[in-house]
Design a protein around this nucleic acid. Structure first.
Length: 490
RNA sequence: GCGCCCGUAGCUCAAUGGAUAGAGCGUCGGCCUCCGGAGCCGAAGGUUGGAGGUUCGAGUCCUCUCGGGCGCGCCA
């Protein structure tokens, strides 16, 4: 069927009032270039000349579609009240691969973790730590039902007792320690977990800072000037329905507190203020309802189309047919730390992006842990190892200079040549899965080529050698994007 | 009730509106004196949940419908 097929006959049939196969026939006969064109029904099948592919090989394939702008990818943003669990893991990998990709495509791409360190949940967490401290000191104290029950809370309590002379502290000083040091320990833990997964955030933005710098007030002022707010029942409302929301939203509650919504708008305004003109948020699917509200607010503030939310569907884990609950307060879940320890960073990363972001992932925990060897990461790493192994045999080269690419080589060539297209697709869909599956397809093509075509000592040695070299180049780039290791040996 | 995501092989999932819908796992059978067998080749396995519609052409787009998931707070 050739290297490329173009259904040009079908496309032009109506306009030319001519049968598709005749159009294709005419076009095929009149096309001239470094290829052979054959008409089949309404298609024109094009087979590129061997020399054209040789020329293409000499140029290399790694290049990106270029866009201008500064991008900020915000992801994970787990509350610092518990460990990062596996559900967050998916968002973490998706975000970090997108960051890597967009950094090649746009002028700049940064990453950021938004730390919700100011809300009611934090207060509850601090309270839980305080109770654990009392218990450690033998005092009589009971954890309420809605407190954080995980063992890590005890660890935090213990660490605080080691670092502070608790008994000498006043009530206020104690709360200060909890509010800063306990929360900071959680943030530090998150940072370490993410780094184990190969994720390094460029910035950690604190909700407290957003509040301290009066961004919520700035948002209110700005909306008020445009007459987009009103008071009702003692609360301040935003006319979000003017911007496509199905209901107006409260910004300031009747008790005077800011809603999470307002603070989040403030945070986004602050991001834009830092000079970013494309905000990518990687959110769990349970935040779906938040998307139109956020877009409404940014439109009202004069920044429509700045926000692009990547909704990542849920990861559900099963153990012997039973769904594993991901409840933070109960403390019974598989943490990301545990998963990485079990199957390794690379296998864990790939696991989260072997499916498109809008597909829910179902995993049996035991299978995920035990059958790590079936992970696609080994398939692509092995293809690379095989290629590098050939290239290492420099002293055995004899330079057979004939050129005649067979079907396996052409498959590889076509795929390599598709690099920029695939990256453009990944950017358009904002889905790392596109990159992962591309790496898998390339590896598949390479394994087949490897099986059928010998490189060293072949009369086509020079051409094949170059093909293998280009393959490793592209794979190295993909490994970088995916954030997994390139191995010389396995 | 409303909004979004999904429904494709036994299971988990692919497939830029194009030709005969593909992989992995599982099942069965083959392939190394040869650049690494963590690989390759073959077999079996499908009414793409269902019904209409648009199109030269629909797994893909539209309408309806059935089933599953998530969300619809002065929670975060």
């Amino acid at each position: 069927m050739g290297d490329y097929a173009v259904p040009i006959g079908f496309v032009l049939a109506r306009r030319l009032r001519t049968a598709p196969d005749r159009i294709a026939q005419t076009i095929a006969e009149n096309l001239h270039g470094p290829f052979r064109a054959v008409a089949v029904k309404g298609y024109v099948n094009v087979t590129m000349d061997d020399q054209w592919w040789m020329e293409r090989l000499s140029q290399g394939f790694v290049s990106y579609p270029k866009r201008s702008g500064k991008v900020l990818v915000e992801y994970v943003s787990a509350n610092p009240t518990g460990p990062i669990h596996i559900g967050h893991g998916r968002g973490a990998v998706v975000g970090s691969v997108l960051e890597n990709l967009l950094d090649r495509v746009y002028d700049l791409a940064d990453s950021e973790f938004y730390v919700n360190d100011a809300g009611e949940q934090i207060r509850k967490f601090c309270k839980s730590v305080e109770i654990r401290i009392k218990q450690l000191k033998g005092e009589d104290a009971e954890l309420p039902e809605d407190a954080y029950h995980g063992d890590y809370v005890v660890d935090v309590a213990r660490s605080i007792l080691e670092r502070f002379d608790w008994d000498t502290l006043s009530e206020e000083e104690r709360w200060n320690v909890l509010w800063h040091d306990a929360v900071d320990m959680m943030r530090q833990w998150h940072k370490e977990t993410l780094e184990k997964l190969g994720v390094t955030m460029k910035a950690w933005t604190s909700e407290r800072r957003i509040r301290q710098e009066s961004w919520p007030e700035k948002v209110i002022d700005s909306l008020r000037k445009k007459d987009y707010v009103y008071e009702q029942d003692g609360a301040l409302w935003f006319k979000s329905t003017l911007f496509g929301d199905d209901k107006d939203r409260v910004l300031v509650k009747s008790n005077g507190e800011y809603t999470y919504y307002l603070v989040d708008i403030a945070y986004h305004m602050e991001k834009i203020n830092r000079g970013y003109n494309l905000l990518i948020n990687v959110w769990g699917a349970d935040h779906i309802g938040h998307v139109p509200r956020m877009n409404a607010a940014l439109s009202a503030l004069g920044f429509p189309d700045y926000l692009n939310v990547v909704l990542v569907q849920t990861v559900r884990f099963w153990r012997q047919g039973v769904a594993v609950a991901m409840s933070k307060r109960k403390g019974e879940f598989l943490t990301l730390d545990e998963l990485i320890d079990e199957i390794g960073k690379d296998a864990a990363r790939i696991m989260f992006i072997t499916r498109s972001v809008d597909a829910t992932i179902d995993f049996d925990i035991e299978v995920a842990k035990q059958k790590a060897m079936e992970n696609p990461v080994y398939y692509i790493q092995y293809a690379y190892v095989r290629a590098k192994n050939i290239l290492a045999r420099t002293d055995e080269r004899q330079f057979g200079n004939s050129v005649s690419f067979d079907s396996h080589e052409r498959m590889l060539l076509r795929l390599l040549n598709a690099f920029e297209d695939r990256m453009a697709l990944a950017v358009r869909k904002l889905d790392p899965f596109i990159i992962e599956s591309y790496a898998w397809e390339l590896s598949d093509a390479f394994h087949k080529f490897y099986q059928f075509d010998r490189v060293i000592g072949s009369e086509y040695e020079n051409a094949r050698w170059q093909l293998v070299e280009r393959f490793t180049e592209v794979m190295e780039e993909l490994f970088t994007l995916l954030g997994i290791e390139k191995l010389e040996r396995m």
